[in-house]
Simulated assay, not measured.
Amino acid sequence: MKEPVPRGKLPIAFITAVVITLAGVTAFAFQATSTNEFCTACHEMKRHQTELRFSPHAVDKDKNPIRCVQCHLPNSFGPKYVAYKTYLGVKDMLVHTFGDPNDFYRAELQVSARMFIDDESCRACHEDLMKDTKDKPISLEGKLAHEAYLGTNGCTNRGCADCHQNTAHLPSFDRRYAVNAEFAAKLPIEKEGM
Rank of each mutant, 00 (worst) to 15 (best):
S76E: 13
Q70N: 13
L109V: 02
R53N: 09
R123W: 04
K91I: 08
L73V: 00
V111M: 12
E108R: 10
M115R: 12
H96N: 13
T86M: 02
K136S: 01
V111G: 07
S76I: 09
L94R: 09
T133R: 15
F54T: 10
F98M: 13
P74T: 01
A148D: 08
D100K: 15
I66V: 14
S55P: 15
H126T: 00
A107D: 09
H146V: 09
V111T: 05
L129S: 01
G89N: 09
H146E: 14
N64T: 06
D103N: 14
Y149A: 02
R114I: 09
N64A: 07
A145N: 11
C122A: 03
S112D: 12
Y84R: 01
G78D: 06
G99C: 03
A124L: 12
F104C: 07
K136F: 04
E120C: 00
E147C: 13
F77E: 07
S121V: 03
D60I: 08
A124S: 00
C68Y: 07
D132A: 00
M130G: 09
A148G: 10
D103Q: 12
L129Q: 08
Q110V: 07
K131H: 05
Y81I: 04
K61P: 14
E108P: 08
R114S: 13
T133V: 12
A113Q: 10
I66G: 04
A58K: 15
K136Q: 11
D132I: 00
K61Y: 07
Y84W: 11
L109Y: 08
S76D: 15
E108S: 15
Y149D: 02
K136I: 00
C71Y: 04
E141R: 01
H57C: 12
Q70P: 03
N102Y: 08
K80A: 11
V95D: 07
S139M: 04
G142F: 02
D62Q: 10
L129D: 02
V69L: 04
T97F: 07
C71D: 10
Q110S: 12
Y87R: 06
Y84C: 08
R53K: 15
K91R: 08
L144Q: 11
V69I: 06
L140M: 14
D92C: 02
S139Q: 02
A113P: 01
P79Y: 04
Y84A: 01
V95L: 14
C122M: 00
S139C: 11
F116A: 05
F54L: 12
S112G: 04
D100A: 12
A145V: 09
F116L: 08
E108V: 03
K131W: 01
H146K: 08
S76V: 10
G99L: 07
V59G: 10
V82E: 04
A58I: 05
Y149M: 08
K143V: 06
A58N: 13
N64K: 13
P74I: 00
D60W: 04
K91Y: 11
V59K: 15
A107W: 10
V111H: 03
L140N: 15
T133P: 01
H96P: 00
Y105P: 10
I117C: 07
A145D: 12
R114F: 03
V82L: 15
A107L: 13
R67F: 00
